[in-house]
Design a protein around this nucleic acid. Structure first.
Length: 986
RNA sequence: GCCGGAGUGGCGGAAUUGGCAGACGCGGCGGAUUCAAAAUCCGCUGGUGGCAACACCUUGAGGGUUCGAGUCCCUCCUCCGGCACCA
């Protein structure tokens, strides 16, 4: 009988399904063994799309399945779950087009994908599967949201704590409330009148309304008016990543506008520091850590307040700078065009120019601004500000190279030491004053010389000296010593501050302290990270578990209460029409689809008051922020997850905290992976989870790429139907040089990219399973190359691994007689050595996720076994065990034929480590003058002397070695234990 | 522009992390089987020279460290990813 993969695979898939073979027991369940260490291996769960999986999707799933099976083999209690991230725009869009409710299509899509996944023989614990759209699931998404809403970050601890604790601290006057709603704990040192710090008040002085507002300022989930990407044609806000570079919606290509809207926000910025620091706790690719660090974008510097010289006396312009040390070099200031002070500080003469510039800037999108970045533009406001350290008035400009969205939207410009400021100063002929002396350049002395020689002013001499030092080509941003500080203030208003000769780091420090003493600034840490815009005007998402209080007239009062936990979930109402409402007017108020829900859903009465439900829904990312926790205890109605269960799966003694291995694509580097870490930290602070980080080890799999073809209009055509000039299907005979391709007789051009629907080059796994079987597909995908690399799908290569499986089959089973070719004779020493070597290599390779190498070793071993007359049983059994994680169906079948009743792929391998991982002898290469001449076998424990002695013996006895040494003296013997011996002769 | 990562046969890729470069697979060539084809099996397959054993060359380019470099250091080139006026 030939290798009948179809029969074998369906037989075993059915059996695994019936037996719930991959169900992992929780503590307290039947079959739970507390002595087994846990191993939690997780895939990034997919979106259940209507077209199902293509062969690129399961790449990561197969890898985790191999690891899961391997770890199970080593005796661990393995949790390997799968679920679906099913809320979101595509389902809704599809529903709008077809009129079928998204729940229906979602369920169909999930069923289809489960079928596809099972067909690949992936050993998931299907009893634990979840879908984010299931009310039993999103009930807990809402619950987590309420945790956020009911928490604040305490300034003393930096941790999330219940908002009730804040109330208690305010009531006991542990905290007073400052003028800007800041919490003041240690008010001993502040100026006080009658024991109370100026400008601060106790909680008891606040009105009900003020208390409400104050708490809302601190909640981790809050409502705020923010600038959002508003797409009137789609009737919804969009996330930045849903907007194209041209400022249009990714779906439908409609214009997108920036506009302020009141939206739910999550205070992720309160965790910015910890999100950076705790990256040190996890085993993630450095590139991903770097991406997150850059995204959070921490800058350490200072805020400095500049008084306005000739405007209203009270106005100050606050700037953020990372270079407070260069404050003496600030020769002008720049405000972003959107800066709120622009209108009040421009002079009458300049107002027309300024207004024109501001209006022009408002029309530009961010993208235009970037494209215009090469040419700086700006206008003078007519006003001046006072440099707080030398009292000098400097002009205030407006320019769009300063962004309102970062820092304070205003900068002090130091053209001598900032490239952008330099460029701007050159263009508008503003003074450039160097205050950092490049090493080796004596600026101060040179300035003096120039002044004496040419009788120039300080300003002019500085300029000249700087031109010499920097060749006037660019700003000097390197290290150096401070110069030019502390010029005298003619009015004597500002005490001189001399920091000349200090290093940049020292000068930053001194400058900040000086600013603090004068109340003109303070140290400040700035982040690029923004708070997370958390609401969408869509139907197919989680409803918010909050209620808006209404007054008697039915208008919102602005007060919000949380829905009690016992009333969760807030289910999505049934709607006949869930379309978002398109509108032409970009300023019209949004009308989210939930506004069309029946009044019985929208309006709630509680304690005699009327409340309106929130009509926005949560964004796509919400459900995926915590799903890895729900897998642990998916049917729990009492809690998100049982604490004991959470502790067991998320903490391990000898392993990393959290999920032991998390595999997914890089595209989630800064969104999902950052959001999930944020939620996890909140849950950690509140005591709901036991680890500070959710994912101990992260692995990014590469993409499967494939050729794609575009016609003359640059539109992708179905790749499978493209033929080359010989009439062969291009998709099967790939990568040939100098080919011409046609589609329906029309010429097309070959491209190359990520496999997927948009390039029309997707290959369905079902086709491959049909033709070669799931084991072949699994093996091929693992064999293509390193898991973290992108690699081309090449159908020709599939036969290679298929032949391997056929060879394995023939090796074990006689084709004609259908009998086993294995008997009880003992393997000889060479065979055993080969087996040990292979198992060691396979183990090492699997451990380092190099599954492709592990497969190569198995092929090598099988090729060696083919040459044997009959397989010794000991060899055969261990070979099948190693094959188990990679080709589980075939391995199960052979295991059964070897006479075992118990399933192989859920069993552990007893005695594995003692049996194979102990090496007693090692083979060392022997070199003569760096050239390999022979090998010696020495005990693994041998010390340097013993190895040297063995090598000297080989120089006498070993033919090749002695030939190389003959006639020459051994001058030196280099011994690297465990590695090599080198005889230096001459 | 800045920050990452990578360059090895005709192709995908190995190389115990400084120790026989090219494992394993594809493709190619030759052979077996077959009326024939597909499938399958066996042998060869980095380059140059040689009938041959063998010799020499070879990991993007150039230099360096070392008994020994694909691997480490410096300079340059190319490709891929991320960020992009972030003060």
């Amino acid at each position: 009988m030939a290798y009948d993969f179809a029969a074998i695979e369906s037989k075993w898939q059915q059996r695994w399904d019936e037996q719930h073979a991959y169900a992992a027991p929780n503590p307290g369940d039947d079959g739970f063994d507390p002595d087994r260490p846990k191993f939690y291996v997780l895939d990034m769960f997919p979106y259940p799309s209507g077209v199902g999986l293509h062969v690129g999707h399961p790449l990561g799933y197969i890898a985790t399945d191999v690891v899961a099976r391997f770890e199970r083999m080593l005796g661990r209690n393995v949790l390997h779950p799968m679920g679906f991230d099913a809320f979101g725009l595509p389902a809704e869009q599809f529903a709008i087009e077809t009129g079928v409710h998204p729940r229906v299509t979602t369920e169909q899509n999930i069923a289809n994908m489960v079928r596809q996944l099972k067909r690949l023989g992936l050993g998931y614990d299907w009893d634990r599967t979840i879908s984010t759209t299931d009310p039993g699931y999103y009930r807990w998404t809402q619950w987590v949201f309420l945790q956020l809403w009911n928490s604040y970050v305490d300034p003393a601890t930096g941790k999330a704590e219940p908002i009730a604790d804040l109330v208690a601290k305010l009531e006991s006057e542990k905290y007073l409330v400052g003028t800007n709603a800041e919490l003041i704990a240690d008010y001993d040192g502040l100026d006080a009148i009658e024991g109370q710090p100026i400008g601060s008040r106790p909680w008891s002085d606040l009105t009900q309304e003020q208390r409400h507002r104050l708490l809302d300022e601190y909640r981790l989930a809050y409502l705020a008016e923010v600038d959002v990407n508003w797409c009137p044609a789609l009737g919804t806000v969009l996330a930045n990543e849903e907007v194209t570079a041209e400022g249009r919606s990714e779906r439908g290509n409609h214009p997108v506008f920036k506009r302020p809207l009141k939206q739910w926000m999550l205070r992720i910025t309160a965790f910015a520091d910890r999100l950076i620091e705790d990256l040190d706790l996890v085993d993630w690719p450095e590139s991903i850590k770097l991406l997150q660090r850059n995204w959070i974008g921490k800058s350490i510097g200072a805020e400095v307040d500049f008084a306005i010289a000739d405007g209203e006396a009270n106005d100050t312009i606050r700037v953020f700078t990372t270079r407070p040390d260069t404050l003496f070099g600030a020769t002008y200031m720049v405000l972003a065009p959107e800066h709120p002070l622009v209108a009040s500080i421009m002079t009458d003469e300049q107002s027309a120019t300024v207004q024109a510039y501001v209006a022009e800037a408002a029309k530009k999108t961010n993208v235009d601004r970037q494209q215009d970045a090469k040419e700086k533009t700006g206008v003078f406001t007519g006003s001046h500000a006072i440099n707080p350290v030398n009292g000098e008035p400097i002009p205030v400009w407006i320019a769009d190279y300063v962004m309102m969205g970062y820092g304070t939207g205003a900068i002090m410009a130091v053209p001598a030491h900032d490239e952008r400021d330099f460029e701007f100063a050159r263009k508008f002929d503003l003074p450039v004053r160097p205050v950092v002396e490049p090493p080796g350049y004596p600026t101060i002395r040179r300035v003096k010389e120039i002044r004496q020689a040419e009788g120039l002013s300080i300003e002019e001499a500085n300029q000249r000296a700087f031109e010499e030092a920097c060749d006037m080509k660019q700003a000097y941003t390197g290290d150096g010593k401070i110069t030019n500080s502390a010029p005298e203030d003619p009015d004597g208003l500002v005490p001189p501050l001399n920091i000349n000769g200090k290093s940049i780091a020292e000068a930053k420090d001194q400058m900040i302290r000086a600013l603090e003493r004068r109340s003109r600034g303070q140290a400040k840490v700035q982040y690029k990270l923004r708070d997370w815009l958390f609401s969408r005007q869509r139907y197919w998402g989680e409803p918010f578990p909050v209620l808006h209080e209404l007054d008697d007239a039915g208008h919102p009062t602005g007060h919000v209460i949380g829905v009690p936990e016992t009333d969760l979930p807030v289910e999505l109402p049934e709607l006949d029409d869930f379309k978002p409402e398109p509108m032409d007017d970009p300023d019209a108020p949004p009308r989210p689809p939930l506004g069309r829900a029946p009044e019985s859903w929208r309006i709630v009465e509680r304690d005699g008051k009327r409340y309106a439900r929130e009509l926005n829904t949560m964004p796509q990312w919400a459900g995926s922020c915590w799903y890895y926790l729900r897998y642990l205890d998916p049917h729990n109605d009492e809690a998100m997850v049982d604490p004991e269960t959470e502790k067991y799966w998320m903490t391990g003694d000898d392993r990393r905290s959290g999920v032991d291995l998390y595999v997914g694509g890089v595209e989630h580097a800064v969104l999902h992976l950052l959001y999930a870490r944020f939620w996890h930290k909140v849950l950690f602070d509140l005591g709901h989870v036991s680890t500070p980080e959710p994912f101990g080890k992260l692995f990014n799999q590469g993409y499967i790429q494939a050729y794609a073809y575009v016609d003359e209009r640059l539109i992708y055509v179905d790749a499978v139907d493209v033929i080359n000039q010989e009439g062969q299907p291009a998709f099967e005979v790939q990568g040939l040089p100098n080919q011409t391709y046609t589609y329906n007789g029309e010429p097309v051009t070959e491209k190359y990219g990520k496999m997927g629907k948009s390039l029309k080059n997707a290959v369905a796994p079902d086709e491959i399973c049909e033709q070669y079987g799931a084991d072949t597909l699994r093996l091929y995908e693992m064999y293509m190359g390193p898991l973290d690399q992108s690699k081309p799908w090449n159908p020709q290569d599939i036969v290679g691994v298929h032949r391997f499986l056929q060879r394995v089959w023939r090796n074990f089973v006689d084709d004609e007689a259908d009998v086993l070719l294995v008997d009880e004779h003992a393997p000889d020493d060479d065979q055993l050595r080969l087996l040990h070597k292979t198992i060691k290599a396979v183990t090492d390779a699997m451990g380092s996720m190099s599954v492709n190498v592990a497969i190569a070793k198995l092929i090598e071993m099988n090729n060696a076994m083919v040459a044997m007359d009959k397989l010794p049983r000991a060899l055969a059994e261990d070979f099948v065990r190693m094959l188990g994680p990679l080709a589980p169906h075939l391995a199960e079948e052979l295991w059964g034929r070897l006479g075992f009743e118990q399933s192989l792929t859920v069993a552990s391998w007893p005695g594995y480590e003692e049996k194979f991982l102990v090496e007693d002898t090692v083979e060392l290469p022997v070199q003569v003058n760096g050239k390999l001449r022979g090998r010696i076998e020495v005990p693994a424990e041998a010390d340097k002397d013993a190895i040297e002695a063995a090598a000297r013996a080989a120089a006498e006895s070993d033919e090749a070695v002695s030939a190389a040494v003959t006639g020459k003296a051994i001058r030196k013997v280099i011994v690297v234990p465990g590695r090599l011996v080198n005889l230096v002769v001459g």
